[in-house]
Nucleic acid binder design. Sequence first.
DNA 1: TCCTTATACATATTGGTTATAGGTATGATA
DNA 2: TATCATACCTATAACCAATATGTATAAGGA
Lengths: 113, 113
Amino acid sequence: MAKTNAAFMSGIPELVVLRLLSRSEMYGYELIRAIRLTSGESIVLAEGVVYPTLHGLEQRGLLKAKEKLVKGRLRVYYQTTAKGKKRLVELENDWHRINNGVEAILRRVVCQN
Amino acid sequence: MAKTNAAFMSGIPELVVLRLLSRSEMYGYELIRAIRLTSGESIVLAEGVVYPTLHGLEQRGLLKAKEKLVKGRLRVYYQTTAKGKKRLVELENDWHRINNGVEAILRRVVCQN
DNA sequence: TCCTTATACATATTGGTTATAGGTATGATA
DNA sequence: TATCATACCTATAACCAATATGTATAAGGA
Protein backbone atom coordinates (compact mmCIF):
# COMPACT_ATOMS: atom_id res chain seq x y z
CA MET A 1 0.00 0.00 0.00
CA ALA A 2 1.08 3.54 -0.67
CA LYS A 3 2.44 5.66 2.13
CA THR A 4 0.01 8.07 3.74
CA ASN A 5 1.90 11.04 2.39
CA ALA A 6 3.46 10.41 -0.97
CA ALA A 7 5.57 13.32 -2.23
CA PHE A 8 4.20 16.85 -2.37
CA MET A 9 4.88 17.28 1.34
CA SER A 10 7.82 19.65 1.46
CA GLY A 11 6.95 22.84 3.29
CA ILE A 12 3.56 21.52 4.34
CA PRO A 13 4.40 20.83 8.00
CA GLU A 14 5.64 24.39 8.56
CA LEU A 15 2.62 25.83 6.76
CA VAL A 16 -0.09 23.90 8.55
CA VAL A 17 1.54 24.18 11.96
CA LEU A 18 1.84 27.96 11.69
CA ARG A 19 -1.71 28.16 10.42
CA LEU A 20 -3.36 26.03 13.09
CA LEU A 21 -1.40 27.64 15.92
CA SER A 22 -2.33 31.11 14.66
CA ARG A 23 -5.94 30.37 15.56
CA SER A 24 -5.54 28.80 18.96
CA GLU A 25 -2.69 27.51 21.04
CA MET A 26 -2.21 23.78 21.12
CA TYR A 27 0.23 21.25 22.45
CA GLY A 28 2.08 18.92 20.13
CA TYR A 29 0.05 15.80 20.59
CA GLU A 30 -3.17 17.76 20.16
CA LEU A 31 -1.78 19.47 17.07
CA ILE A 32 -0.96 16.16 15.43
CA ARG A 33 -4.57 15.07 15.81
CA ALA A 34 -5.84 18.43 14.61
CA ILE A 35 -3.78 18.19 11.43
CA ARG A 36 -5.08 14.73 10.72
CA LEU A 37 -8.70 15.53 11.48
CA THR A 38 -8.91 19.00 9.97
CA SER A 39 -7.36 17.76 6.74
CA GLY A 40 -9.87 14.93 6.56
CA GLU A 41 -7.14 12.32 7.10
CA SER A 42 -5.37 13.60 3.98
CA ILE A 43 -2.38 14.84 5.89
CA VAL A 44 -1.00 12.63 8.62
CA LEU A 45 2.17 13.85 10.26
CA ALA A 46 4.04 11.58 12.65
CA GLU A 47 5.44 12.82 15.93
CA GLY A 48 8.93 12.62 14.50
CA VAL A 49 7.89 15.25 11.99
CA VAL A 50 5.83 17.56 14.15
CA TYR A 51 8.00 17.87 17.25
CA PRO A 52 11.17 18.86 15.38
CA THR A 53 9.07 21.30 13.36
CA LEU A 54 7.75 22.90 16.54
CA HIS A 55 11.24 23.18 18.01
CA GLY A 56 12.60 24.71 14.85
CA LEU A 57 9.81 27.23 14.52
CA GLU A 58 10.19 28.21 18.16
CA GLN A 59 13.92 28.70 17.76
CA ARG A 60 13.28 30.96 14.79
CA GLY A 61 10.86 33.01 16.87
CA LEU A 62 7.84 32.01 14.81
CA LEU A 63 6.21 30.17 17.71
CA LYS A 64 6.05 30.84 21.41
CA ALA A 65 5.98 27.93 23.87
CA LYS A 66 4.68 27.63 27.37
CA GLU A 67 4.56 24.56 29.57
CA LYS A 68 1.53 23.45 31.52
CA LEU A 69 1.03 20.56 33.87
CA VAL A 70 -2.34 18.95 33.24
CA LYS A 71 -3.48 15.92 35.20
CA GLY A 72 0.05 15.17 36.25
CA ARG A 73 1.16 15.25 32.65
CA LEU A 74 3.39 17.79 30.95
CA ARG A 75 2.05 19.67 27.95
CA VAL A 76 3.94 22.21 25.90
CA TYR A 77 1.52 24.68 24.38
CA TYR A 78 2.55 26.63 21.30
CA GLN A 79 1.08 29.63 19.55
CA THR A 80 2.13 31.55 16.48
CA THR A 81 3.89 34.85 17.15
CA ALA A 82 3.47 38.06 15.18
CA LYS A 83 6.64 37.20 13.29
CA GLY A 84 5.20 33.75 12.66
CA LYS A 85 2.05 35.25 11.21
CA LYS A 86 4.07 37.33 8.78
CA ARG A 87 5.93 34.21 7.76
CA LEU A 88 2.61 32.42 7.42
CA VAL A 89 1.33 35.01 4.95
CA GLU A 90 4.47 34.54 2.85
CA LEU A 91 4.08 30.77 2.91
CA GLU A 92 0.42 30.94 1.95
CA ASN A 93 1.28 33.18 -0.97
CA ASP A 94 4.05 30.85 -2.13
CA TRP A 95 1.80 27.87 -1.73
CA HIS A 96 -1.01 29.36 -3.78
CA ARG A 97 1.39 30.52 -6.46
CA ILE A 98 2.94 27.07 -6.86
CA ASN A 99 -0.51 25.57 -6.71
CA ASN A 100 -1.90 27.76 -9.44
CA GLY A 101 1.10 27.03 -11.57
CA VAL A 102 0.66 23.29 -11.28
CA GLU A 103 -3.08 23.56 -11.85
CA ALA A 104 -2.46 25.57 -14.99
CA ILE A 105 -0.26 22.79 -16.32
CA LEU A 106 -2.58 19.98 -15.28
CA ARG A 107 -5.79 21.55 -16.48
CA ARG A 108 -4.66 22.83 -19.84
CA VAL A 109 -6.62 20.98 -22.49
CA VAL A 110 -4.78 18.83 -24.98
CA CYS A 111 -6.15 20.40 -28.13
CA GLN A 112 -4.33 23.70 -27.73
CA ASN A 113 -1.22 22.53 -29.48
CA MET B 1 14.73 38.50 -2.84
CA ALA B 2 12.97 35.19 -2.40
CA LYS B 3 13.91 32.23 -4.48
CA THR B 4 11.73 31.53 -7.49
CA ASN B 5 10.51 28.29 -5.99
CA ALA B 6 10.30 28.42 -2.24
CA ALA B 7 9.49 25.03 -0.72
CA PHE B 8 6.36 23.21 -1.81
CA MET B 9 8.27 21.80 -4.77
CA SER B 10 8.69 18.16 -3.87
CA GLY B 11 7.19 15.90 -6.47
CA ILE B 12 6.32 18.80 -8.75
CA PRO B 13 9.01 18.21 -11.40
CA GLU B 14 7.96 14.60 -11.92
CA LEU B 15 4.30 15.56 -12.04
CA VAL B 16 4.54 18.40 -14.53
CA VAL B 17 7.05 16.62 -16.76
CA LEU B 18 4.87 13.52 -17.04
CA ARG B 19 1.84 15.70 -17.66
CA LEU B 20 3.31 17.90 -20.37
CA LEU B 21 4.96 15.00 -22.16
CA SER B 22 1.71 13.05 -22.11
CA ARG B 23 0.22 15.63 -24.45
CA SER B 24 3.03 16.06 -26.94
CA GLU B 25 6.61 15.01 -27.19
CA MET B 26 9.19 17.67 -26.38
CA TYR B 27 12.91 17.98 -25.94
CA GLY B 28 14.41 19.12 -22.66
CA TYR B 29 15.13 22.70 -23.49
CA GLU B 30 11.67 23.14 -24.94
CA LEU B 31 10.11 21.47 -21.93
CA ILE B 32 11.82 23.86 -19.54
CA ARG B 33 10.31 26.79 -21.40
CA ALA B 34 6.91 25.10 -21.53
CA ILE B 35 6.89 24.59 -17.76
CA ARG B 36 7.76 28.22 -17.17
CA LEU B 37 5.28 29.61 -19.67
CA THR B 38 2.37 27.25 -19.06
CA SER B 39 2.59 27.84 -15.32
CA GLY B 40 2.55 31.58 -15.86
CA GLU B 41 6.13 31.93 -14.61
CA SER B 42 5.05 30.39 -11.30
CA ILE B 43 7.18 27.32 -11.74
CA VAL B 44 10.68 27.79 -13.06
CA LEU B 45 12.78 24.65 -13.20
CA ALA B 46 16.48 24.92 -13.96
CA GLU B 47 18.21 22.59 -16.39
CA GLY B 48 19.93 20.91 -13.47
CA VAL B 49 16.51 19.86 -12.25
CA VAL B 50 14.82 18.92 -15.51
CA TYR B 51 17.52 16.86 -17.21
CA PRO B 52 18.11 14.52 -14.28
CA THR B 53 14.35 14.19 -13.93
CA LEU B 54 14.03 13.18 -17.57
CA HIS B 55 16.81 10.63 -17.25
CA GLY B 56 15.31 9.17 -14.12
CA LEU B 57 11.85 8.88 -15.61
CA GLU B 58 13.23 7.29 -18.74
CA GLN B 59 15.16 4.74 -16.73
CA ARG B 60 12.00 3.85 -14.83
CA GLY B 61 10.20 3.34 -18.13
CA LEU B 62 7.85 6.27 -17.61
CA LEU B 63 9.26 8.19 -20.56
CA LYS B 64 10.51 7.14 -23.95
CA ALA B 65 13.35 9.06 -25.60
CA LYS B 66 14.34 9.49 -29.19
CA GLU B 67 17.12 11.62 -30.64
CA LYS B 68 16.70 13.98 -33.55
CA LEU B 69 19.21 16.17 -35.35
CA VAL B 70 17.63 19.53 -36.09
CA LYS B 71 19.62 22.27 -37.83
CA GLY B 72 22.87 20.58 -36.93
CA ARG B 73 21.83 20.46 -33.29
CA LEU B 74 20.98 17.43 -31.23
CA ARG B 75 17.60 17.24 -29.59
CA VAL B 76 16.37 14.44 -27.37
CA TYR B 77 12.60 14.18 -27.60
CA TYR B 78 10.67 12.55 -24.79
CA GLN B 79 7.13 11.36 -24.47
CA THR B 80 5.20 9.74 -21.66
CA THR B 81 4.71 5.98 -21.98
CA ALA B 82 1.59 4.03 -21.03
CA LYS B 83 3.27 3.15 -17.77
CA GLY B 84 4.08 6.80 -17.30
CA LYS B 85 0.46 7.74 -17.79
CA LYS B 86 -0.61 5.33 -15.09
CA ARG B 87 1.95 6.83 -12.79
CA LEU B 88 0.67 10.28 -13.76
CA VAL B 89 -2.85 9.41 -12.68
CA GLU B 90 -1.53 8.29 -9.30
CA LEU B 91 0.47 11.46 -8.88
CA GLU B 92 -2.46 13.65 -9.82
CA ASN B 93 -4.62 11.87 -7.26
CA ASP B 94 -1.98 12.27 -4.56
CA TRP B 95 -1.49 15.88 -5.46
CA HIS B 96 -5.17 16.72 -5.25
CA ARG B 97 -5.56 14.85 -2.00
CA ILE B 98 -2.69 16.70 -0.32
CA ASN B 99 -3.98 19.90 -1.83
CA ASN B 100 -7.47 19.47 -0.48
CA GLY B 101 -6.06 18.62 2.92
CA VAL B 102 -3.99 21.77 3.06
CA GLU B 103 -6.84 23.89 1.76
CA ALA B 104 -9.13 22.49 4.42
CA ILE B 105 -6.67 23.59 7.08
CA LEU B 106 -6.01 27.00 5.56
CA ARG B 107 -9.59 27.90 4.80
CA ARG B 108 -11.23 26.77 8.02
CA VAL B 109 -12.63 29.86 9.67
CA VAL B 110 -11.39 30.79 13.10
CA CYS B 111 -14.78 30.87 14.83
CA GLN B 112 -15.41 27.13 14.63
CA ASN B 113 -13.37 26.42 17.74
C1' DT C 1 -2.44 -6.94 39.92
C1' DC C 2 -0.94 -7.04 35.32
C1' DC C 3 -1.11 -5.77 30.72
C1' DT C 4 -2.21 -2.90 27.09
C1' DT C 5 -3.47 1.35 25.10
C1' DA C 6 -3.50 6.25 24.90
C1' DT C 7 -1.20 10.24 26.16
C1' DA C 8 2.87 13.29 25.78
C1' DC C 9 7.26 14.37 25.05
C1' DA C 10 11.84 13.78 22.49
C1' DT C 11 15.87 12.87 18.96
C1' DA C 12 19.13 10.50 15.80
C1' DT C 13 19.55 8.67 11.38
C1' DT C 14 18.10 7.73 6.84
C1' DG C 15 16.49 8.75 2.47
C1' DG C 16 14.74 11.24 -1.29
C1' DT C 17 14.71 15.28 -4.16
C1' DT C 18 15.28 19.95 -5.40
C1' DA C 19 18.77 23.66 -5.96
C1' DT C 20 23.17 25.25 -7.21
C1' DA C 21 27.03 25.60 -9.80
C1' DG C 22 29.50 24.29 -12.91
C1' DG C 23 30.91 22.29 -17.92
C1' DT C 24 30.73 21.37 -23.27
C1' DA C 25 29.40 22.67 -27.84
C1' DT C 26 26.91 24.76 -31.92
C1' DG C 27 24.17 28.31 -34.42
C1' DA C 28 22.67 32.96 -34.83
C1' DT C 29 23.26 37.77 -34.26
C1' DA C 30 25.51 42.16 -33.74
C1' DT D 1 34.73 38.05 -33.59
C1' DA D 2 32.33 38.35 -29.61
C1' DT D 3 28.11 37.48 -27.44
C1' DC D 4 23.81 35.37 -26.76
C1' DA D 5 20.54 31.70 -27.28
C1' DT D 6 20.21 27.00 -27.93
C1' DA D 7 20.93 22.24 -26.27
C1' DC D 8 22.81 18.94 -23.74
C1' DC D 9 25.00 17.12 -19.26
C1' DT D 10 26.57 16.02 -14.17
C1' DA D 11 28.43 16.37 -9.45
C1' DT D 12 27.73 18.28 -5.11
C1' DA D 13 25.26 20.63 -1.68
C1' DA D 14 21.36 21.62 0.89
C1' DC D 15 17.09 20.78 2.64
C1' DC D 16 13.36 18.27 4.83
C1' DA D 17 10.15 14.66 5.63
C1' DA D 18 10.02 9.80 7.09
C1' DT D 19 11.42 6.26 10.01
C1' DA D 20 12.70 4.15 14.03
C1' DT D 21 13.32 4.38 18.58
C1' DG D 22 13.23 5.87 23.36
C1' DT D 23 11.20 7.60 27.98
C1' DA D 24 7.39 8.16 31.11
C1' DT D 25 2.64 8.57 33.05
C1' DA D 26 -2.46 7.78 33.17
C1' DA D 27 -6.29 5.03 32.15
C1' DG D 28 -8.83 0.98 31.25
C1' DG D 29 -9.60 -3.90 30.82
C1' DA D 30 -8.79 -8.68 32.19
